[in-house]
Simulated assay, not measured.
Amino acid sequence: MDVLSDAVAAMRIGRPHSARRDKYAPWGVRFAQSDKAGFHVVLRGSAWLIPATGEPLALAPGDVVFLPHGQEHALASGLDAPLPEVRFLPDGTWSKPPPAGPTDGPSAGPSDGPSDGPPSGCPDTVTLCGTYLLDRSRAHRLLAELPEVVHLPARVGTHRSLRAAVELLGMELEENQPGTDAIVTSLLDTLLLYILRAWWQSEREAGRLRGWAAALADPAVAAALRAIHRDPAHPWTVGELGTTGGLSRAAFARRFAALVGEPPLTYLTWWRMTTAGRLLRHDDLSLRQVAERTGYTSEFAFAKAFKREYGEAPGRYRRSAGHRA
Rank of each mutant, 00 (worst) to 15 (best):
A7I: 02
V8Q: 07
M11C: 07
R15A: 13
R15I: 14
W27E: 04
R30I: 00
D35V: 09
D35G: 15
G38D: 12
G38F: 04
H40G: 10
V42A: 04
V42F: 02
G45E: 06
G45P: 05
A47H: 03
A47E: 03
A47V: 10
I50Q: 13
I50W: 02
A52L: 09
A52Q: 11
T53K: 11
T53G: 08
A58L: 11
G62N: 01
V64P: 07
V64T: 14
G70L: 02
Q71E: 15
A76K: 04
G78M: 04
D80I: 05
E85F: 00
L89F: 02
P90L: 06
G92N: 01
G92F: 06
P99L: 14
G105V: 03
G113F: 02
G117D: 00
G117H: 00
S120A: 09
L128Q: 06
C129R: 11
Y132K: 03
L133M: 12
R138Y: 08
L146W: 02
L152G: 06
R160G: 07
A165N: 05
G170I: 01
E175T: 14
Q177W: 10
T185G: 09
S186Q: 12
L187I: 07
L188M: 15
L193N: 04
Y194F: 12
L196W: 06
R197T: 15
A198G: 00
R204Q: 15
L209M: 03
L209V: 09
W212M: 15
A220S: 11
A224L: 08
H229P: 04
H229W: 06
R230P: 01
H234L: 13
H234M: 10
G239A: 11
G242T: 07
G246P: 13
L247K: 09
R254L: 11
R254F: 01
V260D: 01
V260M: 05
V260L: 06
G261R: 05
P263Q: 07
Y267F: 14
R272C: 00
T274V: 15
G277K: 01
L279D: 05
V290I: 05
E292Y: 03
E292C: 03
T294F: 00
E299L: 05
E299P: 03
A305C: 07
F306K: 08
R308D: 15
R308C: 04
Y310S: 09
E312Y: 01
E312Q: 13
Y317T: 05
Y317F: 15
R318A: 15
R319E: 13
A321F: 06
R324K: 12
R324A: 08
